[in-house]
């Protein structure tokens, strides 16, 4: 049995083609494959990170983006500790769908789930969505916000490390020890979140998260 202090379940959602799989592969394998096939159904990867000397295992669930796959992916939201909602900064439609995704989250995820909005593909030159638009949206909906580039490995590590940190902190505060994911019906409590919509913190802090 692998040794770890906490195990957290992180689920990535968002429209098709925004780069969910690339974010996961960049983080777990350090790869950005030039061609990445469309994800069908749900995929799963795992990575152990170290936060303040403690091993934290992240179970990362990558989902298919198309709406009709939601009937399959929904069941994975429920037990998630963190949800990463991804859009493509070079594609307005992927941003316009965010309210739909939020409704999904409201309906199927725990209300206490850690929610992170990610604007991916910052390497693209045809940006359609300025950073502040995403930031404002995240702020309005009580989410964390970060912009990433899976291709350039920008902020990807940080995204997951910050999530791991937050969840660890919450677990300690909430006196929860989610060692076994199957026995964790609810994610750690996040009472203080509304007071600290930490998007600015994430955006400004240095990228050396480890």
């Amino acid at each position: 049995m692998e040794d770890y202090k906490f195990l957290f379940k992180v689920v990535l959602i968002g429209n098709a083609g925004v780069g969910k799989t690339c974010l996961v592969r960049r983080f777990t394998q350090g790869l950005f494959p030039p061609g990445q096939g469309a994800t069908i159904g749900v995929d799963f990867m795992i990575k152990t990170v170290e936060i303040e000397g403690e091993k934290i295992k992240l179970q990362i669930w990558d989902t298919a983006g198309q709406e009709r796959f939601r009937s399959i992916t929904q069941s994975y939201y429920r037990s998630a500790h963190a949800l990463i909602l991804v859009y493509d900064i070079s594609s307005q439609p992927t941003f316009d769908c965010l309210p739909d995704w939020l409704r999904e989250i409201e309906q199927y995820a725990s209300c206490k789930v850690l929610r992170v909005l990610v604007g991916n593909k910052t390497d693209r030159e045809d940006r359609e969505l300025p950073t502040h638009v995403g930031e404002e949206f995240a702020h309005r909906h009580n989410m964390y916000f970060i912009e990433t580039s899976a291709k350039e490995a920008d902020n990807v590590e940080k995204l997951f490390i910050e999530i791991a940190k937050e969840l660890t902190q919450d677990s300690k505060v909430g006196d929860l020890s989610p060692q076994d994911v199957s026995n964790v019906p609810l994610p750690p409590t996040r009472e203080t979140r509304s007071e600290f919509p930490c998007c600015s913190r994430w955006m400004s802090s240095s990228s050396s998260a480890t």
């Binding site: 098709a16 083609g17 494959p33 030039p34 061609g35 990445q36 469309a38």
Partner: peptide, 10 residues
């Protein structure tokens, strides 16, 4: 359009 370039990238 999104899926076409993501078909059999190999």
């Amino acid at each position: 359009r999104v899926d076409i370039p993501r078909t059999f990238p190999d």
